[in-house]
Design a protein around this nucleic acid. Structure first.
Lengths: 214, 214
DNA sequence: CGTATATTATGACCAATAGTCATATTATAC
DNA sequence: GTATAATATGACTATTGGTCATAATATACG
């Protein structure tokens, strides 16, 4: 009889409900200011029940981050599929990241908050993996410089892009004040530099006169 | 009479003692696991007194981070002074950062922990500033590409380098396991890419045959 | 149906601790 | 030597993450 399966489904569903409740409040009040009691209340459960599904507040945060990573991963795959050459795919992934960071700020913040935890294993959904694929394709189809190491470069791209975006995020106002530069310009500039770093066909010979377009 | 000044000195000294105590325990047990009582005890003061000098635990953390930033800033200035061309200066600053991250791991971690807080104003010691100077010099002396925007590039460099180092830091083991790459290699590879991005004299014409050296 | 068992839910409770405040101590001024 | 100001204290409060004995509910099964 399928009683066991039904129960499991119900359990999963409830677990998910709790994550949704947690997410709602984390996003509204911030992680620190959210109490387990808050979450229980929104999930219409008691505090103790929350701990039946999660070991700690931190784990609850992890579950929310996971949702964010899945969204991001989905966007990356879409970007990957929607572009032709390897270079285009790589650029599209970068653009998707920028969109994620803009359109899913709450998830992005949650993700950043997670960037402390040591990582034991590269997860199946790790964004670096799809970047590696894109770069490899680019090397094959000649759109990406032949001499780069796709794995190392993917690791770099992921790290440095996150760094640029994070830095931009937290210092945006300060940068605008101090240097009179619009924050979006920085991101654009970054994308240009990355393209220059990866593209096979850098004309670059003299002063770089005609390479502004991108 | 200089009583007031002496008192101020004493106050400053005591404040500093508290920061030193806090640092000691933060580094030993981690920020979360440190209690104000711990700090008070090491500083040989009572809890209440701590709050006479600092508003919150978070502020105490900020004071420790400040010390780290000063060390880093000192290393940057040394690197800057010790190199000739603008490009060399920039590279030396990068190398100094890598050394800081290796040799002052506790401060580095504290710094990362701080990377959440929004930044209101670019501080006098902000590492980006010296990077801007180095790049400007490089553009003048011809060692750095003429077409880069020193301010934007400095902002990028700071952000992306922090990102690469942070990513490397937390995923080192995972990366080694998954891709069999030594973490230091990643950093080296990164430095190469940065040099390529900044240097004026990229031969790069065809496939990049003879550019491995660096 | 009715009883035994297993699963899930509850909320009072505990321990830890950031931050407060009335009180006490000490230094300064005059 | 007394009034005043600065500094220090630690008992106390409020909050909250996490636990656990108890209760409610669902399932199994004769």
């Amino acid at each position: 009889m399928g009683t066991a399966e039904r129960r499991q489904r119900e359990k999963d569903w409830r677990r998910n409900e709790i994550v949704l409740a947690a997410e709602k409040i984390f996003f509204a009040k911030g992680f620190e200011n959210t109490t387990i009691e808050d979450i229980a209340s929104v999930a219409e459960l008691s505090k103790g029940t929350i701990y039946l599904y999660f070991d700690s507040k931190e784990q609850l945060h992890g579950a929310v981050v996971m949702r964010g990573v899945e969204i991001l991963s989905g966007m990356f795959h879409e970007a990957f599929e929607g572009a032709d050459t390897g270079l285009e795919k790589t650029k599209a992934i970068g653009a998707a990241y920028m969109r994620f960071f803009r359109e899913q700020e709450d998830y992005f913040d949650a993700l950043l908050r997670y960037e402390f935890h040591e990582v034991e294993k590269i997860g199946k959904h790790d964004p670096m993996l799809i970047l590696i694929d894109a770069l490899k394709i680019g090397i094959e189809d000649g759109s990406v410089r032949q001499d780069i190491d796709p794995v190392k470069m993917a690791i770099l791209l992921w790290g440095q892009t996150t760094g640029v975006v994070q830095n931009n995020h937290r210092k945006c106002k300060a940068i605008t004040d101090a240097f009179d530069i619009d924050c979006d310009e920085i991101i654009e500039y970054y994308m240009e530099q990355v393209k220059r770093m990866l593209a096979a066909d850098v004309p670059s010979g003299g002063g770089g006169a005609g390479s502004e377009d991108v």
